[in-house]
């Protein structure tokens, strides 16, 4: 019994039943498969998170986003006063996370790639793009650069999914995707 010492003192010489061995073998192979699946996806998959990251002072990042907004601002989102920014395809685009908003609203073109820079001005936040369901952690002091390519047009939302204090459930942002060429 498992609550008593093994009766066979030299238990490591016991034979192991064939069914048990077979299961261990299958489970081991499955583990190997799942391990190599991740590597395979790095080589052949289209959804891999970039590891390109720079240290940045939160204030410097805020300044960068502000000058980005100034440069490409095309209007405001409804009557919210939040700027809408339409950067050229292929360019570097910025989104700032801070208590409690993602700023500014980005207007991107379908099928075009953008280098998205994410960082926080204060605490950690969670960039959760809905309803696409891409989720990325945002840290203050780290500027994370990833390439994204929208494949559908429409209005997409960013919902903060890292608890960031009293206003966490009011923290959202927006990405608009328009037909290629329509934004210019």
């Amino acid at each position: 019994m498992a609550v008593r010492s093994p009766e066979v003192r030299i238990w490591w010489n016991e034979p192991v039943a064939r069914g048990e061995l077979l299961w261990i073998f299958i489970a081991f192979l499955w583990g190997l498969f799942m391990f190599f699946m991740m590597i395979y996806w790095h080589i052949n998959g289209n959804q891999n998170l970039s590891t390109e990251t720079y240290r940045v002072k939160p204030d410097d990042f805020v300044a960068k986003v502000e000058s980005f907004v100034e440069k490409y601002k095309v209007g405001e989102e409804g009557d919210t006063g939040v700027p809408v920014v339409a950067p050229p395809p292929g360019s570097d685009v910025y989104m700032l996370a801070r208590l409690w908003e993602f700023w500014p609203v980005l207007q991107l073109e379908k099928g075009q790639s953008y280098r998205l820079h994410l960082s926080s001005a204060d605490w950690q936040h969670g960039f959760s793009l809905q309803p696409v369901n891409i989720n990325i952690q945002v840290h203050p002091g780290y500027e994370h650069v990833l390439t994204i390519t929208p494949t559908e047009t429409g209005v997409f939302s960013v919902v903060c999914n890292e608890y960031c204090g009293a206003g966490h459930h009011t923290m959202t942002g927006r990405i608009r995707v328009v037909e290629s060429g329509a934004g210019r």
Binding site: V82, S128, P131, N133, S157, N161, T172, G173
Partner: peptide, 23 residues
Amino acid sequence: TLGVPRRHWDITLSDAILSFDFQ
């Protein structure tokens, strides 16, 4: 799986400036 955040008080996001409706 439908994208609902954890540790979140209000998924209607009614107090957010930019709204979003979960399905």
